[in-house]
């Protein structure tokens, strides 16, 4: 992992990834990635929620609307959820949202569900690197150009 890999060479496409992390496993896993200095591209942004079960499809669509090229919902491994079964709710919801993304033409492959425990810092970084590469292959989210074309659109900030 060298610096050269992330050096921006214009007009290189740097995917923007949003990760919804549950507080107990995945957010702690992301922290551990940092503590262990496992690097991943800075296009990744983490939003903390208490449980992956909290992540609504609306949040995911909003993320795409606001410039994300890919979204990950990350929670505890099945059976290890801090809230017993919130992660299984997340699993069902992500599955359905992926179908919706296909219908919308964004592509199910831009949304992923990952189980990352508090001890899997390396996995967290690996998933981020791998997903960034995958999104790079796919190219920018089609939602962005569509929104840019829409005259009246402005990204509302509050």
């Amino acid at each position: 992992m060298g610096a050269e890999q992330f050096e921006p060479t214009f007009p290189k496409f740097e995917p923007r990834i949003v990760v919804f992390c549950c507080n107990w496993c995945s957010y702690a896993g992301a922290d551990l990635a940092g503590v262990s200095r496992y690097q991943y591209p800075p296009g990744v942004r983490i939003v903390r929620v208490m449980c992956s079960g909290r992540v609504e499809p609306v949040f995911i669509f909003d993320a795409f609307k606001n410039g994300a090229d890919g979204v990950i919902v990350a929670g505890c491994h099945p059976g290890e959820c801090h809230y017993v079964s919130g992660n299984l709710n997340a699993e069902r919801r992500v599955e359905n949202t992926r179908k919706a993304l296909d219908y919308l033409g964004l592509g199910a492959e831009r949304l992923r569900l990952e189980w990352i425990s508090a001890s899997e810092g390396m996995k967290f970084a690996e998933v981020m690197r791998e997903f960034t590469e995958e999104i790079k292959e796919l190219g920018p989210s089609p939602m962005k150009s569509r929104l840019n074309r829409c005259e009246n659109h402005e990204i509302s900030r509050d």
Binding site: R16, Y83, N89, S156
Partner: peptide
């Protein structure tokens, strides 16, 4: 955990400190 808030089809159920508007405020500024 907020699973109920994510499940509610009309937005009547909220998770305090992680309300829809609070999470969306972050998402909009990503």
């Amino acid at each position: 955990c907020g699973t109920c808030a994510a499940t509610c089809p009309v937005g009547a159920m909220e998770q305090r400190h992680f309300k829809n508007v609070q999470v969306e405020a972050q998402v909009k500024n990503l």
